[in-house]
Design a binder for these strands. Structure first.
Lengths: 194, 194
DNA sequence: GTCTATACACAGATAGAC
DNA sequence: GTCTATCTGTGTATAGAC
């Protein structure tokens, strides 16, 4: 019961975070969305930052689960696995379920950097991706001139690429077309491949 | 005198906007930074949104000036001009002078969409870039399979790429190295070019 | 653990004297 | 146009009853 309630809270937070971002999201909204009183929220999570952290942990756990998923074993090349992960993240974002943290925000950033569960999840995902990046560079599928961490940061950034939302809002493309195009700009670049 | 004062205000707003973003920036901070009282600020600009809009207009005017600059005439290929513009924008961001607007923020977005000067500047820059994109696609320098507007949005997004700030904060690379790497991920993609 | 009611802080905006 | 002082709304967080 308690776990279910907290899962519902995190779910609401996740959606609101994706929709409005951390600053614009208010705890009142979260409470209203969950259907409980604000004070009750604070019995589960001691602060707004903890709410956001819980949402981030959940999405990172989902990512880790996806990295370990069976479907990944069907992809022998690390480069293909990286593309698949990026595609998964972009789909999550288009579904309105990718929590958006303001790039640089003092109080939230500070809270996250001291949040053990968040750091642990982030580390796990990053390490797995880091291995794949190095492997893909050895295979000749990812540009070996780029430092692996640059590739890693770029993948994280593209998972939240605002271009996805902009293209979706034009209503000119299906979600899959949007994902394909942004994936293309990410891995193949804007320049023509000859 | 009045123009100089307002220029100083916009300059402060620009820097604070780049540093903290719209939500985290407070009007009190702006006033303190400029060195005048908050009430005086409101004699020049009627709202916080107008302050942000003024900063956006300025950066767009700078961009337009750069597009018309002599140095651009030395680049016969549109693809090279696009790369040069992206480089310019990335340098601006690394210098801490690229105002960061939260991707989706109701009040600010609504205000900007009704701000004539902002829309006019944005349109001018976009039209010029749009021409170059089509030209570069004809030249075979930009992937002709991507709709021009997708390329345009991607360029705008990369001009504010958070990866720049992350890489700078690691202090492992010079500013020019950071720019070169992010430019490479933008135009050449993460995948290896064979 | 859930609620109602409230404390507290702060930020955007304004009043009004000079 | 600049200032000091203030209004007002709103958002985070808490008190205390049940």
């Amino acid at each position: 019961m308690l776990k279910a309630r907290e899962a519902a809270i995190v779910s609401s937070v996740n959606r609101l975070l994706a929709e409005k971002g951390f600053d614009a999201m208010t705890v009142d909204e979260v409470a209203a969305d969950v259907g409980i009183a604000k004070a009750s929220l604070y019995k589960h999570f001691p602060s707004k930052e903890e709410l956001a952290a819980a949402a981030m942990v959940r999405v990172l756990e989902n990512a880790r689960a996806y990295l370990d998923d069976e479907s990944m074993r069907d992809l022998p090349r690390a480069g293909d696995r990286l593309r698949a992960v990026a595609r998964w993240a972009m789909r999550v974002q288009l579904a309105g379920e990718m929590p958006a943290l303001p790039a640089q925000h003092s109080t939230l950033r500070a809270a996250l950097l001291q949040h053990r569960a968040y750091l642990a999840s982030l580390m796990q995902v990053s390490e797995r991706l880091g291995e794949w990046i190095v492997e893909a560079q050895r295979d000749g599928d990812v540009n070996p001139q780029l430092p692996p961490e640059v590739v890693l940061y770029t993948l994280y950034a593209r998972a939240c690429d605002p271009v996805l939302g902009v293209l979706k809002s034009t209503q000119q493309y299906t979600d899959e077309q949007v994902v394909d195009m942004v994936l293309s700009t990410c891995f193949d670049g804007l320049a023509a491949r000859r």
